[in-house]
């Protein structure tokens, strides 16, 4: 039996003003993979995620999640934005931020109750942040903030997770903690799509990879397509020396 497609992107084109940021992207992500999106700065990695999630309106193209339009499948999708995209001096606590993950299933007006709080505490525990639950978020370190963001997505209990550079600016301990959680999620059958910068760790962390530089260069299993040829095509310089597998 063929694995179903978790995410399918057809002919996606995004432009800011006149300059295309993403050009005619076709992408099919099978269920249960831990996929890295790699590419140079300005390649449109974050934009691709944002366009799939409807945060940015594409000029053309269609997105489907498990065969249906994204709008109908929102509950299956969780998003971990870049840490730097919010103001961490906002007056709230770690627990409160994680609780926000439950807002989607609550819908309008209804307030989170005991059930939501319990789920949030469990998620905080999973990322090793339970003892920081009442900490004001500005008093968390960068790695801790990233874990809080991850916990907020975990609370959504989604099938597909989109993450925008979850390893950015975190120390080695946090990086290992995060990748272990991601691998656990994959084991549980979830699909993870991660914007990633560190090419060295791609073969170790991920089983699927997409090379992106405005156009899609290649997508597939890391073992088959993570090679010098694709790296050179994506980054424009010879990567033979840089990557020692």
């Amino acid at each position: 039996m063929k694995t179903p497609l978790a995410v399918q992107v057809d002919d996606l084109t995004v432009a800011y003003n006149y300059k295309p940021v993403l050009w005619d992207i076709d992408l099919a992500v099978p269920e249960g993979v831990l996929m890295a999106i790699v590419g140079p700065n300005g390649a449109g990695k974050s934009t691709l995620i944002k366009a799939i999630l409807g945060i940015i309106k594409p000029i053309a193209g269609s997105i489907s999640i498990y065969g249906k339009p994204y709008e109908e499948q929102r509950k299956l999708v969780a998003y971990v934005p870049q840490k730097g995209s919010v103001d961490w001096d906002f007056p709230t606590t770690a627990l409160d931020v994680v609780m926000m993950g439950t807002y989607g299933s609550l819908g309008w007006i209804k307030r989170p109750g005991q059930k939501e709080k319990k789920a949030a505490l469990e998620a905080l525990e999973k990322v090793g942040m339970l003892s920081f639950k009442n900490r004001q978020i500005s008093q968390l370190s960068g790695g801790q903030q990233q874990r809080v963001f991850l916990a907020r997505a975990l609370v959504q209990n989604a099938a597909i997770y989109f993450m925008d550079e979850p390893f950015q600016g975190v120390d080695a301990t946090t990086e290992i903690a995060i990748i272990n959680i991601l691998k656990e999620l994959r084991k549980a059958g979830k699909t993870l799509i991660v914007v990633h910068h560190d090419l060295q760790t791609v073969p170790e962390y991920f089983d699927w990879v997409t090379f992106l530089n405005v156009k899609k260069i290649a997508t597939g299993p890391v073992k088959e397509i993570f090679n010098d040829d694709n790296l050179t095509k994506t980054y424009g310089i010879n990567y033979k020396v840089a990557i020692n597998k």
Binding site: I55, Y79, P81, F90, M100, Y103, G104, L106, W108, I109
Partner: peptide, 22 residues
Amino acid sequence: LLFWKEFKILLFDADYTKTLGF
């Protein structure tokens, strides 16, 4: 008071709020 939750999450993280379907 009615839209407390929605106001709070929009103030903190507008993009994320959008992905939740608000």
